[in-house]
Write a protein that binds this DNA or RNA. Structure first.
Lengths: 146, 146
DNA sequence: GATAATATTTAGCTTAGCTAAGGAATATTT
DNA sequence: AAATATTCCTTAGCTAAGCTAAATATTATC
């Protein structure tokens, strides 16, 4: 019973630590992303288009966990700015298929490089053993957190 | 040289994994936070007020990495809703000191409990060894990521 | 005492989220 | 085959949360 209690308290502490760590990691990354000139939500949407595209507005909205009108407007802007293309689906006239332009791909790749650099710089100061711990944890978390 | 290259590629992979993991963790937490009825930014500001308060609008803005007008408006609303109080500083008539009400503390505590529960539930499925890996990684990251 | 600096607020803009409602295309029912 | 229902997207209009610039009030400095 004492063991149980202790374990649950430890779990809560871990949860707290994980929470804070995640917030700080993403704050770092946001800084790198700003350099691309695209906001977080747009960059995220573009990323889905690049890696999973071509896909419909509805699919993109689902992937971004956002309502279709939000994506509709965002894609309109990204299209105007030349990062994305839209065409009617050949199978279903209601559907708009979104895909990335070469400029969109380039922008995303540049952003990704910056972002990874930022995090790599952070991790670089760690001894090899700690890097491995971080990596192992990231893999574990990706496995359990959909 | 080969070692160098390999290590740098591994670092990038780790950075990528960490990025994805952080996004997913915070997505989970957001869901729990929604149940409090306060948005992320407001909850975050309230949290600073509860744990570091009383403090000035400017200090709060700095803590939240946001401009003073953003906080000024948010605090006005939180005050109206009864979660926060404002009074002039006795030392400096320009500054407004913000502190939490009992209702504010209760709300935050309830939110924190939900959030930790959500994460704990996630971590609970892990064997003890993996939990320790996650915890160790969180501690490492907190140490290096300001 | 006049001027400069600082803290906050107000005003007005943008982006990104939402719901509700409308139009066009497709699917279903009779 | 026609009528009806559903689906996909867009438009319109709202809110929250960020920003800058400018106004106000207080404190600090010369």
């Amino acid at each position: 019973m004492a063991k149980q209690t202790h374990s649950s308290a430890a779990l809560q502490q871990t949860a707290d630590l994980l929470h804070s760590a995640s917030i700080r990691i993403l704050r770092r990354i946001r800084r790198a992303d700003e350099a691309t000139g695209l906001s977080g939500p747009r960059l995220s949407a573009l990323s889905v288009v690049v890696f999973r595209g071509p896909l419909s507005i509805g699919e993109l909205a689902a992937a971004e966990q956002v309502r279709p009108p939000t994506i509709s407007r965002m894609i309109k802007d990204l299209e105007y700015e030349g990062f994305v293309l839209r065409r009617a689906s050949p199978d279903d006239g209601r559907v708009q298929l979104v895909s990335a332009t070469a400029a969109g791909r380039r922008l995303l790749e540049r952003g990704r490089r910056r972002r990874v650099q930022e995090l790599s710089a952070l991790l670089e100061v760690l001894p090899q053993r700690e890097r491995q711990t971080v990596r192992a944890a990231a893999e574990i978390l990706l496995r359990i957190a959909t």
